[in-house]
Design a protein around this nucleic acid. Sequence first.
RNA 1: GUCCCCAUCGUCUAGCCUGGUCUAGGACACAGGCCUUUCACGCCUGCGACGCGGGUUCAAAUCCCGCUGGGGGCACCA
Length: 529
Amino acid sequence: MEPARTRIAPSPTGDPHVGTAYQAIFDKAFAEKTGGQFILRIEDTDQVRSRPEYELKIINCLKWLKLDWDEGPDIGGPYAPYRQSERTEIYREHIKILLEKGFAYYCFCTADELEHLRQEQKIAKLPPGYFGEYSPCRKLTEDEVRSKIKAGIPYVIRLKVPIDEGEVSFFDSIRKKQLVKKFKEIDDQVLLKSDGFPTYHLANVVDDYLMKINTVIRGEEWIPSTFKHVLIYQGFGWKLPQFYHLALLRNPDSQKSKISKRKNPVSLEWFRAAGYSPEILVNYLALMAYSLPEGIERFSFSELVNSFNPDRLSAAGPAFDFVKLDSFNTEYLSHTDTVSFRKHLKERLDYLEEYLGEDLFKQMMERFKPLSQEVGYWTDFFFKTKLQYNREDIEGIKPLSITDVKTFSEILNKWLKEKGSLFENLPVIPEEIITEAGKENMNPGIFAVYKAINNIVNDTDFHGSLLKRNFPDTFKEKIPKTAFMILRISCTGSKTSLPLWESLHRLGYYRVIARLDEFIQFTSSLIRK
RNA sequence: GUCCCCAUCGUCUAGCCUGGUCUAGGACACAGGCCUUUCACGCCUGCGACGCGGGUUCAAAUCCCGCUGGGGGCACCA
């Protein structure tokens, strides 16, 4: 394969998009596989929406994913500058060529006139577009044009699409077929805006040619525009690059529409702050359009490069499945070594301040008092793909009236009863223990555990390896099975926790006894009501 | 509306180009089991798809046509 020069050309008009990374993966893989180069070019031709901070964010996120480039605005390269706002002179020179060759023309129509035109076309049931007989400016003589320019009338320069019955076509290497469109279905696209900046179409073609991009990989949303691009290439007399139009990432709902921030997180910063591993995100994203011949799903970027074969790129639109991504991430994190795990956690925490912003981060810090509390506790709501709402939560925010208070206490009572039911299947406790505990305010199940712990300490060494590793037989005989859960809950506060004996050992005798004491009191108070 | 793209389990896909080896394979999810005095991990099993209709052929998930469904474009935004 010929060395491929590929490029990612994001527009710095918003948060770095997951689709940008998705595309960059294949750009970079293609370049590396063929011994070519991968280029980052910033398409900031929209003066209104482009912001320098977005460019920085894009660069940071792509670097986070280790999808770094061989040439770009930050590192330069033989075809600099790599920022389109710094190349306006180049576009103006090139538009002259198109003008001279008769492939472009001046247009002085105002926005209102254009709107009018579209209405006319709509009524006439014609496809909307500025072309053919609908374009008065196409018919302007050179003198007329010159005098209008002299008069200072603002203008744009449009592509002069042929008006005959012909057609344009190009080969799409993912769909593996020739895509065709008739001239009359293509509108006279604006090439140079009235602010003197090029539109995407012009800048993109000119830069791709000048930067020797021979492999264009981008989303399939660009297919309709590609016909215009081909016309521009032809106007200049340039050879076409190879086109690979990637299927668009879709929302995982039944609609499967193009992935959108209204329905799902799409910002790379979100993925980063949420704690996704960059390797895993890249792996998962690659899977959206590519599959290894061996059917291997988990692979590193270099493994992807090794086996990369553009023929295997898929044309069908994949739904982005957060559940599967999560499972990949979990698997990765739980099987990695402790050093990488710590590194990952540390990086995530470092980034969290940047993501939340200083104010919000400090707010989190204030709530961070109990040192054992993990970062996620206060920040999870940022990262849940689906929030769970509790009935109690919703009842709770109602305005309080007498009736409301009544309702509230009823719910509270019900809730407490459910907690109490945990002890429905209480173990049978010897009569003497219950007597000893005092029948009125002691929960027998808890007390049995309490008692047993005390016995154990009498019989064995709590701090010794016995408790750390093996379950003591003496304990086993004395305590019914359900008691283990009671022990676990009382000592860890949760029905699910790390292995019990190691945890108890780590807690130590005094804290175990203290927690049991507290738990006994807590449950007794619940049961009495 | 119009032009274009796409179509295998719920989801991501392998297979399709070079028809038979496909009673369609894998992964995530789900269900059951094993392991485990919890949870998780791990292991095993199960559930589950070639959108529909026509061709072509001895034979079609695979080739052709139509339909249906989904998606994208139709800006002085990219």
